[in-house]
Amino acid sequence: MDDLFSDAVAQLLRDLSTPDAVRAIEAGGEHRTLWQAIEDAGFADALVPEAQGGAGLALHEVFGVLSLCGTHAVPVPLGETVLARGWLARAGVAVPKGSTVFAEAEATTDAVICPLVRTGRVADQVLVARGGTLRLLPAATAQATPAGFVLDVALRWTAQAWEAGTPVTGDAQELRLLQAALYAAQLAGALRAAFDRTLAYANERQQFGRPIGKFQAIQHQLAQMAEHVFAARTAAQLGCRAEGLVPQALQVAIAKARTSEAALEVAGMAHAIHGAIGFTAEFDLQIFTRRLHAWRQAAGSESYWHGVAGRHHLDSGNALVLDTIRAATTVH
């Protein structure tokens, strides 16, 4: 079921989320056509129970979809909306139409300020965590200013708008785990896209009468990239291993730490092999490496999740780190 679902998503994204379409939306172009196609196909309801009109899949069954959001650099929040709708359905909140993203608010008294809302520029709703409280707020009622990545914004709601929002039950820490699992999956997809483009470039680019991919130094870099890409995908799959909606903290920590670590290495080697051309706006590589850097830090970078994994090990009572790793990675 999950493969059939992912294949259908892949076909749509290959047609509509092309590099040119991504560039146009990033430049401020119209994004509704892409989102409406996703909405009409029902892909955003993958985690919504069948009784509520969704596909009724579990988190591990939508890993392929979340990864494809990175593979195709999707410039609308498909992955976020899939998880948000699953969360809202579980909380008993009517699932809204349109796209939904996640955000964390600063501790203020007179307003609700979210300094960095990923993909917030093209979102319809925002599921905001403020302390231990969650509310669903319309993005249109907030004051928006550019922040971070090209599709990111800072959003500010009045205290009255916060009170008028829809209360959502749930643990804010669990929501953060879900976000980290999402970004790990998207990183895995973007890492593979960056690697595939770099491998193709190395086989096409001629220097001294032969492809640069024939030189030992380039082959060594490509081999290192491949190791990072496939290790990151395995880790990201581990982070989405949940029969329900929320994954385990240690598995998410391993997934996000490994994929974030790979993001730096793969982006650096990809641009080294491409040379200066890889940074140009006309070249596709930068579409993916910019996302690698943005998603690496989203929901916590590798250093944060290394700390989470370390604390989990100390609390586990295991004498050896290997025992903790075995417990987290054993397939039941």
Rank of each mutant, 00 (worst) to 15 (best):
E30Q: 11
A200K: 12
L134S: 11
T133E: 15
V252P: 05
T289G: 09
A111C: 07
V117L: 11
A180N: 06
R192F: 02
P211G: 09
K214N: 07
A309E: 10
L292P: 03
H312R: 15
V229W: 06
L320S: 14
A276L: 10
D284W: 05
L264W: 09
A262T: 03
V48I: 11
V22A: 13
V126N: 00
G239K: 15
L66I: 11
R291P: 04
T324D: 14
D20E: 15
V168W: 00
F208Y: 13
A276G: 03
A144W: 01
E30K: 08
A55G: 03
G92P: 04
T141A: 14
L59R: 05
Q173P: 02
E265G: 05
G131S: 07
V74D: 04
D171P: 07
T100I: 15
S316N: 12
L127M: 07
H306T: 14
D124N: 10
L47P: 00
L34G: 00
A298W: 01
S99H: 10
H313S: 11
G213M: 06
L83H: 01
K97R: 12
G29P: 04
P115C: 12
Q219C: 11
Q36E: 14
V150H: 06
A223R: 13
H31V: 09
G300F: 04
Q251R: 15
K256G: 06
A319D: 14
A253G: 09
I25V: 15
S301M: 08
R121S: 05
A276M: 08
L88E: 03
G268N: 12
A37Q: 13
L151C: 03
H332L: 02
D7C: 10
Q248S: 04
Q143C: 09
G98H: 12
A231V: 08
G213E: 06
A107I: 09
A223H: 10
R90D: 00
V321Y: 09
W157T: 05
G42Q: 15
S260K: 02
H271V: 04
A123Y: 07
E106Q: 11
V22N: 13
V95R: 05
D7V: 11
N203Y: 08
A257T: 08
T330C: 07
N203P: 04
R121E: 02
F43R: 06
A10R: 11
R296P: 00
C69H: 11
D124Y: 04
T71P: 00
Q186P: 01
H31L: 04
H31A: 13
T133F: 03
G53N: 08
R192M: 07
E282W: 07
F5A: 09
E265R: 08
D315N: 13
Q206W: 07
V128C: 08
